[in-house]
Nucleic acid binder design. Structure first.
Lengths: 225, 225
DNA sequence: ACGAAACCTTGTCATGTGTCCTAATTATTT
DNA sequence: AAATAATTAGGACACATGACAAGGTTTCGT
């Protein structure tokens, strides 16, 4: 008899496996649930102990499953890693896309909300620690690199939209640059946030600073002081 | 006959091994040079292929050296990793400390110079890619985490000094928060910079935006708009 | 109920890993 | 030049890893 089923890992109520293997009519197949379980376990290990610790055997035992069965679902470790990252990244992308259709609040509020998502909301998930791993992996794996760049490109879309609303006078290039700067900035904040120590207790203040800073940066771009 | 000696890896004219193993009176010992060579090779592999690829054998062969000899100088892999990161981090720390005794230029110029160091100068070294690895490792290794936090604490010192000069009215806590924000922000920029694609060609513009943004953030902190 | 497809177990293989040990060789000191 | 210490070579060990194969078991459509 298997252990109690591992709780389904969710990002914003989207399960990892939903993304990797969309459900078919009539519910989930057995294999679907197994893959979901595998991806969940793999992510937990990746986040908690790093990529090196995420071995096939380690994942298999975490799933109460034999190694051979794991390789049945994910023939190679690379398959597992890529499918996992793909699922995680897609979950975030879906979230970012929501900001493209926000209700009619002021652009400043929108900007604040986007920052809020990344700095506060994402931060509270234990998954923040995926990102350092992602960056490290992306330096040596073309596939991961491209997928990560997709992710950040997608994250910049709502940013650019907001920036255009605040500063309709700016050139597309200027808008892109500002979005690039802000997204990179936020990424730094989230990476720091993962490493707690001096950062965590000051998070609310830093979020305030960040939002104010980004708004002012957009407003003041290209102006004299 | 050994291959041509690997060029000594330097950060700002400080060799890696100088930091890990300060030279004794009367010049370098043979072991000193060997360790320098080892650390160099290890760093090159770490940066180019990631932590997983940095195996003892890989490092040894990169040094034209037998495995046993490598373990003579660095008994365990952990020793090697830690000593390497320690050396790299120390090199950056030394650089940061220089900003504590800068000539009497305006605070804004100082801030610009600090940003310049991190965004432009450091970026051009191939070593930028150490940082993603550092962040990933720090999530699972207490030693690395502490050392990394040391580094960023050290990097914040000159930042805080500049912020105090610009805004003598701010509380120590506010100064610390601003420094925390700016350093995290810059870290994000350097991490992005390592991954080239959309970032690299816009680097000069982004540096301008960053510096202006940081100055304005410090100036405008706590004010009404 | 039956047969095919999906799923899972068990066991094995070659390879790569970190660490250790002993003896030879080289540097350094006396 | 002799003695001592530092370095290097060479080999071996136990262990973990990713991948694979052949055979059972369950699930599911018909």
């Amino acid at each position: 008899m298997p252990h109690t089923r591992a709780e389904t890992l969710k990002f914003k109520n989207i399960t990892v496996a939903d993304l990797a293997f969309p459900k078919r009519d009539g519910g989930y197949s057995k294999g679907h649930r197994t893959r979901e379980q595998i991806l969940h376990a793999a992510l937990v290990i990746l986040v908690a102990e790093g990529y090196a610790a995420m071995t096939m055997r380690r994942v298999a035992t975490a799933c109460d499953m034999k190694l051979g069965n794991l390789t049945y679902h994910f023939p190679t470790r690379e398959d597992l890693v890529r499918e996992l990252l793909n699922a995680v990244i897609t979950a975030y992308e879906i979230e970012f896309d929501k900001f493209l259709h926000l209700p009619g609040v002021s652009p400043e509020e929108k900007l604040a909300e986007i920052c809020g998502l990344i700095l506060e909301d994402i931060r509270t998930e234990k998954t923040t620690r995926v990102f350092p791993e992602l960056w490290a992996l992306s330096n040596h794996d073309e596939f991961v690199l491209e997928r990560v760049q997709d992710l950040y490109a997608r994250a910049r879309a709502p940013l650019m939209q907001v920036i255009r609303e605040i500063r309709p006078d700016l050139s597309p290039q200027a808008v892109a640059d500002l979005a690039l700067f802000i997204s990179a900035s936020m990424e730094g904040l989230t990476i720091f946030a993962g490493n707690k120590k001096p950062f965590e207790p000051r998070m609310p203040q830093l979020e305030t600073i960040a939002i104010q800073s980004f708004v002012e940066t957009v407003r003041g771009y290209g102006q004299e002081d």
